[in-house]
Amino acid sequence: MRWLAAAFGALYIACVWLDGAGTGLPDKLLPLPARTFIQVSQLFPHAAKDAIEWHAKAWRCDGGGFQELDLAPDFPIHAGDKENRFDRAMCFYLRNHTVLSAIDEYLVRAEHKAGRPAIGGVMLLSVRIPIPPPGTDEERYHFKPANDYPPSERRYWYVTPSEIRDERCAEQR
């Protein structure tokens, strides 16, 4: 029994090393769920070019147009840092329309359920704040609304189609 445990342990450790060393071998051999548990050693291998923030603007049904949405009430786990579910979802699936639509639907539903001003849809965007070279003086990081950044640093990934926004707003009236 102990040799069996040792063999399992050795296999796990070998997979962790092979994955970290970039051989790609575990990806070929292991099923996806098992791979999750060995992808633990590639920690911060690359330099960040920009500090990335994820924002959402909500389409206000009262005619206010798109306005920055406070995501903390709807995504309270680690609100304010990049371990937040909204940040992670945007980071992983920013090109996946199915997931972005699911975020849209969730936000509209959650805002409605919480009794906040009705919204018909969202605009999901990233802000890329360039990181200065070492030794540069800069202000302490704090989260600011997307509109406080120049347009060149903003990138839009998803907007609820206008007909869906109108439909949802009509439903909520």
Partner: peptide, 10 residues
């Protein structure tokens, strides 16, 4: 400068 680059976000 990887360490430096990671010190500027949330």
């Amino acid at each position: 400068a990887v360490v430096w680059s990671q010190l500027h976000d949330d």
